[in-house]
Amino acid sequence: MSQSNANDLTWYRIGPVSDIPPLGSRVVQHQGVRIAIFRAHGDAIFAVRDQCPHKEGPLSQGIVHGQRVTCPLHGWVIELASGEAVKPDVGCTPRYPTRVDDEGVISLGVPALPPELTPADDVVHDLADDA
């Protein structure tokens, strides 16, 4: 999935950066998939599947340092920007694009629904306001 090809993605506003503790993470559930949203060094926001490529450990529970997270189960280190495990370990967890707007609200891009259910291109689901 790529951010440039916006047609494949649905964007959701998921809440302000301040909802996540600095060097912390929280989970967004999407159709049964847990997506870990990270607030890394310098308030950089990343999103990856909450599943370590090694043994599916919940990355959202790991210690965040720089722009990486250390998995709580066996200590693999995952590069948040790419989802890749830091060498010499090999593996990759899917990542999701994020944006932060001027008010500091995070939007998360997830793969769109099957074609027949796809909302219009410019639709943004603003669940933060709905709630």
Binding site: I14, I20, R26, V27, I37, L127
Partner: peptide
């Protein structure tokens, strides 16, 4: 409760 609750549940 941020540690224990998901940030959001989508669809």
């Amino acid at each position: 409760d941020h540690e224990y609750e998901p940030m959001m549940v989508l669809s």
